[in-house]
Nucleic acid binder design. Structure first.
Lengths: 244, 244
DNA sequence: GACATTTAAATGTCTGACAATGAAAATTGA
DNA sequence: TCAATTTTCATTGTCAGACATTTAAATGTC
């Protein structure tokens, strides 16, 4: 393992890349211990500080974990679904807030993904999921609920729906859609939306799941999507009218 | 901005968190310049080395970029879709390779997502996408193609399909599904698959898109999913038979 | 055998230094 | 006057060496 002093990239970035490659190609496997920082510094012919910066880059991606003390060191980390969820949510949130993504595009993406899991959720939902969804609907019905709490409950409801599909890979993929986009949409539409309408649609979803009817689940989601798109258009229209 | 010396987390992790929060809550916006490393060191009451480790963590997530020289520094980076694709692919690849995800679960997730975009792709595909898909099918038909090249072409075909939906958020979401899972599946099934069958299914997809018939597109994808699941089962069965 | 102490290896942090960079400012030349 | 060149200097990148802290293993003690 050597690095190129003429490359435009920093040493620490090159070293991080080299180790990342080793992990992704299987040369390093889960729970393997990397050489100590001092050894890596010697191998790559750089200072320990530079090695440390490289390791921190990898730690930021949850590729390694470090442990202090004798027999400690840096170990290849098993990327858990939970950690991956977090990264997915962070990335999705920033991607939406930093790029000119229209409400329409975001909403379309979010519901296209969620509708994809409807048949699986209808087939596999168990009592736990239904119970969560029902209790969130109940919570949403309370008149004294703040907008933040309503949004939070909304997210919890959709997460239960996603988890009902019983496929962790899909849950991971949809984490960004539900946990990043849903709050964003709530923030935009909260002033215009009718909680009653949303709750009614949630109830339709829950009932369809209970009866295991995939088409009704899909249709209810479709209707929720349409309603949200309408809200978005209204808010945008109101905003531009106010400016004129 | 202060840090907690009694926290279990490293200073550099705490500082990275604090800055990450500032970015995600909008206190720092795109192209804002962070204080210099020396100033941050003073603010947080740590050494410059520790600040640098924190900044490298953020750089690894593409949250900041750094520029050397006077008037350089660390700037909040606009997370581009392209960068997000890369992260998505890395994370998805590792998630699948490090966790006991069955072929069936991965395949189900991958096709559920891809089928979600079928109606949009059918409605919006333009000549570019069709041309790419046709040329990839053509390439796949060549007898002298290596397995690696066939897989690469397969990925390119599906990427064109995803891009045909004309929604960058969906393209980002599906990047992991196509670019991480497809190669994985190819690796497992390449010995058992019939290129002819796959090409025929690809042709059906391309034709359905050309005619803008969403249901046929969806059905072809469904058939491709079923075929792939069959292959997976066969390979698993053959593998356990060999062991017995 | 159970508990306390020591040891050593590793990460975490600090200090101070110098190199490399690159945009702005200052200088030069026509 | 203006364009080309040089200088300046704030900033990041890298280094060497030091010390603090942690922690599991080894050792010692009862």
């Amino acid at each position: 393992m050597k690095i190129d002093p003429n490359s435009s990239a920093d040493f620490s970035a090159q070293i991080a890349s080299a180790i990342r490659d080793a992990i992704m190609t299987g040369k390093l496997i889960v729970d393997d211990r990397l050489p100590s920082e001092a050894e890596l510094a010697e191998q790559f012919e750089v200072s320990r500080a530079t090695v440390r910066e490289a390791l921190k880059r990898l730690a930021a991606q949850s590729l390694i974990r470090t442990q202090r003390g004798a027999f400690g060191g840096a170990f290849v980390n098993r990327l858990s679904f939970e950690e991956a969820y977090g990264q997915q949510i962070t990335t999705s949130t920033l991607l939406l807030s930093m790029n000119a993504v229209t409400f329409e595009v975001a909403c379309e993406a979010r519901y296209a993904m969620e509708r994809a899991i409807a048949p699986l959720a209808a087939a596999r939902r168990c009592e736990d999921h239904l119970a969560t969804m029902r209790s969130e609907i109940e919570r949403q019905s309370r008149a004294d609920l703040t907008d933040e709490a309503f949004c939070e409950s909304d997210v919890a409801f959709h997460r239960a729906l996603v988890d009902a599909a019983g496929n962790p890979v899909l849950s991971y993929q949809l984490a960004g859609a539900v946990e990043a986009m849903q709050p964003l949409m709530n923030m935009i539409t909260f002033s215009a939306r009718s909680r009653k309408t949303i709750i009614r649609l949630h109830m339709r979803i829950a009932e369809a799941l209970e009866l295991r009817t995939a088409t009704d689940t899909d249709q209810a989601l479709q209707d929720l999507c349409d309603y949200t798109q309408d809200l978005g258009r209204n808010v945008v229209a109101a905003r531009s009218a106010r400016q004129a």
